[in-house]
Each structure stands twice: as structure tokens, then as C-alpha cells.
């Protein structure tokens, strides 16, 4: 019994260390608890608000038929011709560039460069055989055209490339 008392006297510093460690642990867990973000872990190991953040992003490109509302004639012309599967925004700019809150913001630019046409129709390695494609030089020679930066549009109307040959 006497020995135990003696031992206790000499372990004062150990108990003080243990008390400090205990306090530190409590502080760490308390701080952590306070800092856990709102909505954490409701649906998995993530913050639910992160999904809301993504949903809040406004689309840059419009819907597939987003242009139809204001431009029904052009829409109809494209959809009934050979470029029917093209999105308007591929050759123009994304809808949000042009429209804001349902109102026209900036005029819609048009890419008239032959390079745009070449992205799809230049004959290069890898394109599926059935797809219409030309060697630009050969095609110009055959058709008797003069090369220029917008040369394709000399003959082809971009909305109806084969129907409206000039």
C-alpha cells in the first residue's frame, strides 16, 4: 500500500502529460466537428452542395433546337438538307454568345473559312470511305475554282451544301 502511494507521487508529471494529451484530443475533435461543411456525407463521402454548385452552372451552348424559336426559316432549311445533323453552334458561336435572358446580346458571327469546311470534308487519313470528302487542290482544279480563304462558299451554300449549288 505504502509503495503505491510512493509511486503515485513520482508519476505526477506523467499524469499532467496525459491530461494535456486528453485536452488536445478534445480540442482536435471539437474543431473538426465545427469545420465539417454543411451537407457532408448525406449521400456519400462528399458535400451535397457540390452537386448544387454543378447544377447552377449556366449552359453555354443552347438546346439542340435552341435557335429555332427566332430563326424558323433557317432552321427548316438546314434540317431538310445535307447538313441536317450539324449543330448551328458548330459553325456559329455558342448560343449564350448571342442571346442573354431571351434577348439578343451580340450579333452571331459565322465562320466562313475554308478551314472549317476542311475539318470534315478534306480527304485525310482515317475518314470513313462513304463520307463526302475532297482533296482541296484536286477539287478546285476539277471545278475550275480559284483558291481563297472562303473559297468553298463560292459554290456551296453552307446551310444546304449540295442543294443550293451555285
Amino acid at each position: 500500500m505504502g509503495e503505491t502511494v510512493k509511486k503515485e507521487r513520482h508519476t505526477k508529471h506523467v499524469y499532467r502529460v496525459l491530461i494535456i494529451l486528453g485536452l488536445m484530443t478534445i480540442v482536435v475533435f471539437a474543431v473538426r466537428y465545427v469545420l465539417i461543411p454543411e451537407g457532408w456525407g448525406e449521400y456519400g463521402n462528399f458535400r451535397t452542395g457540390a452537386v448544387a454548385d454543378m447544377l447552377e452552372i449556366e449552359p453555354v451552348h443552347g438546346r439542340w433546337d435552341g435557335c429555332k424559336k427566332c430563326h424558323p426559316d433557317q432552321w427548316e432549311a438546314v434540317r431538310t438538307a445535307d447538313h441536317a445533323t450539324l449543330s448551328c453552334e458548330s459553325c456559329h458561336e455558342p448560343l449564350s454568345f448571342h442571346v442573354e435572358n431571351g434577348r439578343r446580346k451580340t450579333p452571331m458571327p459565322t465562320d466562313r473559312s475554308y478551314k472549317l469546311c476542311a475539318r470534315c470534308h478534306r480527304r485525310i487519313q482515317g475518314r470513313p470511305e462513304g463520307f463526302p470528302q475532297v482533296k482541296i487542290d484536286d477539287h478546285l482544279e476539277e471545278m475550275g475554282g480559284e483558291f481563297g480563304p472562303e473559297v468553298c462558299l463560292d459554290c456551296h451554300a453552307s446551310h444546304a451544301p449540295l442543294e443550293g449549288l451555285r
Binding site: H10, T11, R16
Partner: peptide
């Protein structure tokens, strides 16, 4: 740092 106990007796050091 010494936690205000200056116990450096043999027994304490053994602990």
C-alpha cells in the same frame, strides 16, 4: 515545459 514538477528522483526517472 517541465509541467511545473521538478521531480527528478530516481523513482521518477525510472518511470
Amino acid at each position: 515545459v517541465a509541467l511545473f514538477t521538478y521531480d527528478i528522483s530516481e523513482e521518477a526517472l525510472a518511470v
